[in-house]
Amino acid sequence: MIRAENLTKYYGKTRGVEDISFSVDDGEIFGLIGPDGAGKTSLFRMLTTLLKPDKGKATVGELDVVKDYKKIRKKIGYMPGRFSLYQDLSVEENLAFYARIFNTTIQENYHLVKDIYQQIEPFRKRLAGNLSGGMKQKLALSCALIHSPEYLFLDEPTTGVDAVSRQEFWDMLENLQQKGITIMVSTPYMDEASLCDRVALIQKGSIFNINRPEGIISDFGRDLYALRSRDMFELNKDLKNYKNTHSAFRFGESIHFTAENISGEPESLRNYLIEKGHEDLKLEKTEAGIEDCFMDQMTAK
């Protein structure tokens, strides 16, 4: 189990995180969803014993992150957000190096990394600095796994990675979960939230919601409409100027709209847009996603 109680970290006057509490059950994939600067990395560094909290307490597998930091380090694998392997060592050398730091060998734990490492093995002689983004990510994950950790901390493993590689990466995480590894992963991509067992939404150093993805969506509590018309640019503008607009955000090919006051909607809105001359207008009720929920909470503050 990973447990954080009132964790707080300031950098001078700048807030890293404030008063954060949550727990992750063994065997869970727990997602930390939020934009850059939300405090995700501060949280990871405290849980991986690289940064001391100003206040609060955290444990990983019943071990305290401050007192028992040496023991914790043997139990965890950490993949930092910035690529942090040795660029001037080859793929193979990096993996062997990480194995040796933890007094093990590639052979001993090969079964753990096999599925992932096999994909980059044809390039094992290549310097890590010369790998493409997707391959670097696979190597970093292999290195974080080679000592057979019980807990895996992945800080934005899919940032800057294309949609296909992102999907492959999440498939790998599911495999690791089945091997009994507890995974805490952060991401700025809201669509990845649905792939976690539970998620925490984090913004400006505090967590504002923790729940299963379905739970977060059912908390949304507003009528959400998806709109399209021939001229999306004008539709966007007109929705922003409509008197009863609570929110209007583009979502792919539609615009998602919520009303300030639900009475008379969406009929009044439809009339307003027809008056504005929109052609091929489509207006239908839709279900909220994690991103809708996140933005609703963001703009509420």
């Binding site: 934009p35 640019f233 996140f294 933005m295």
Partner: peptide
């Protein structure tokens, strides 16, 4: 990749600027 890592509200404001 102008919007990498940016929060979802700002990401949309950024696209309004692009438009």
């Amino acid at each position: 990749e102008p919007t990498g890592g940016v929060d979802p509200v700002t990401r949309r404001q950024f696209w309004d600027m692009i438009y």
